[in-house]
Design a protein around this nucleic acid. Structure first.
Lengths: 214, 214
DNA sequence: TAATTTTCAGAACATTAGTGCGAATACAGA
DNA sequence: TCTGTATTCGCACTAATGTTCTGAAAATTA
């Protein structure tokens, strides 16, 4: 990009500050006053230069029609808020977002996660673990489990599965082997268990585990 | 907050979209056209209502002087990037940031974490765990351990400690008991061990553990 | 230094855009 | 139905704001 004059730098940073402060862009005369410039035409002139240089978007005939060109260097990390829907404990019924629940999450606490993890955040939610019942999945009391509602889970992924015959829910690595389904704890020192596939219901896929010990 | 009329909701979401699209707020007439409203005064009227209800900031006599009231639900989380300094494996020497290393982190990968966890991010770094040597701390291969250089560690907190006599490094809950120091695994099913305090060197405090299973 | 380009001044001008106001409706409660 | 309040309608008005133009000063370049 072309190098900018002193004045153009002043203008640019003024615009930035102004937007930061007011949430709407400055008018040409705002800039004129803010940067001690003698004439509106000078401002207009320099705005054109800034636009040419690619630092600024300008929409003509629109008052305050300015916006800063997002600098590609300044990485903006998007975070997506996912709802903390409740707790998960041994044996207890497993909280799941229902269709009608999604629309009203106002009550639940929100947790921000990097977008790289959540994707769009659709169908992603968090549960707080209570108790040590999932110790064999290397998950302990207080941990936050990030889950994604999953239609399907690939082999080897960790999922929340319900074992129908026991009516229990656990987090295990999931391996479908035709008529049988193998559930493997994360702790490889503990043996896997195998079930009839009809006996297993996959509820959600585990995306991540977050343990905070402030 | 007061409940909004159909029209007010339409206006509000139009403003949101407009700003999202253009990076500057709409004029009253933009809203009028965008929402199929018959008169500018109707728009103005409803903008006043929206302002009263707290959904909107409005600056009179300023064209496009609108901004959405940051919805308190839509928390804007600041993230802080911390460097991933290396891997930690059983027995291997423990990577630690050195003073001169801090200034040159350009080479290392950065990880974004919510500010609530990292604070200013000063002295916070991440290590990737290799191997299952810390399974008794409920940490397994591939996990990311977030650490903070700590002058001191309070009892009960998890820390990276070096046992001098063994010259090994592990992550354990730390309990100082005068002349003796007790190290307790996160997995409470495993017994604690006690050492002479001089034999223990605290390297860093463990702030969090992040396990991602994309 | 002369020629050329860039930037600035100042003011008039043209649109864009916010405001005000009386009258017309819509709406909810007595 | 009456009545007061909330909302809508147009429209004219005024303020805010972008644009343009001429000439000159300043900076660059040859």
């Amino acid at each position: 990009m072309k190098k900018l004059s002193e004045k153009q730098l002043t203008i640019l940073s003024f615009i930035e500050e102004f937007i930061d402060e007011n949430d709407y862009p400055p008018s040409i005369r705002d800039i004129q006053n803010g940067c001690d410039i003698s004439s509106t035409s000078v401002v207009s002139y320099n705005l054109d230069r800034l636009k040419e240089s690619g630092y600024l978007n300008r929409h003509s005939e629109v008052s305050r029609g300015l916006s800063l060109q997002r600098d590609s260097v300044e990485v903006e990390i998007d975070t997506v808020a996912v709802p903390l829907l409740g707790t998960i404990a041994a044996g207890a019924p497993f909280p799941m977002p229902e269709n009608d629940t999604w629309s009203d999450l106002s009550g639940s606490e929100l947790i921000d996660l990097p977008q790289a993890i959540t994707g769009t955040g659709e169908g992603v939610y968090a549960l707080k673990v209570r108790g040590e019942s999932m110790i064999d999945a290397l998950i302990s009391d207080g941990d936050l489990v990030i889950m994604e509602q999953a239609a399907s889970v690939r082999n080897g992924q960790m999922a929340a599965v319900r074992i129908k015959s026991d009516n229990t829910t656990t987090l295990k690595h999931f391996y479908s082997e035709g008529p049988r389904t193998r559930l493997e704890p994360a702790n490889s020192q503990i043996a896997a268990m195998t079930f009839r596939s009809e006996d297993i219901e996959v509820l959600s896929r585990v995306v991540a585990v977050w343990r905070y010990m402030g």
